[in-house]
């Protein structure tokens, strides 16, 4: 049975966060979500430092990344992930309300695996979340290299 890895959710809005986790729950992924509220925390988590120093849960199967984040902006987080030797292979799906051309272009240019615009309709939103979770956390083969944890 494929191992259900966890998902790193980087989202600053608590309501959106809750809704996303609800959606993931429909595929039984809810208890495997690590939610952080800003870019700095996300990087801390991935690099096993700050308040995540010494974590042992391994690499996430997926990073769900919002763009409009306080402290470190989403695109900057993306860039830092994709230029880091160890972190480059992590799948990053941008999940944002912006469908501006320049954000989409920049996202793909920086190496995002997918760019998803949050649907306005709630049902569609949940549907998209389910599918993303299923695809990246269940269907895909996770990376097998050891990380810091």
């Amino acid at each position: 049975m494929p191992e259900l890895k966890h998902i790193l959710l980087v989202e600053d809005d608590p309501y959106d966060s809750e809704l996303i986790i609800t959606g993931l729950a429909e595929n039984s992924l809810a208890n495997r979500v690590v939610a952080v509220g800003d870019g700095e925390e996300a990087l801390d988590y991935l690099n096993c430092c700050g308040k995540f120093a010494g974590r042992t849960d391994g690499w996430p199967a997926l990073v769900l990344l919002d763009l409009k984040l306080p402290k470190i902006d989403g695109l900057e987080v993306l860039r830092l992930i994709k230029t880091d030797e160890k972190l480059r292979c992590l799948p990053v799906v941008i999940l944002t309300s912006s469908n501006e051309d320049r954000d989409i272009a920049e996202g793909y240019k920086l190496g995002a695996n997918s760019y998803v615009v949050k649907p306005i309709d709630f049902h569609q939103f949940i549907d998209v979340i389910k599918r993303i979770g299923a695809y990246w956390a269940i269907v895909i083969e996770p990376r097998r290299v050891n990380g810091c944890a």
């Binding site: 959106d16 309300s97 949050k118 309709d121 709630f122």
Partner: peptide
């Protein structure tokens, strides 16, 4: 739109 989404969602 974000709060709208939240409203309908919740």
């Amino acid at each position: 739109r974000a709060p709208l989404r939240h409203m309908s969602g919740f």
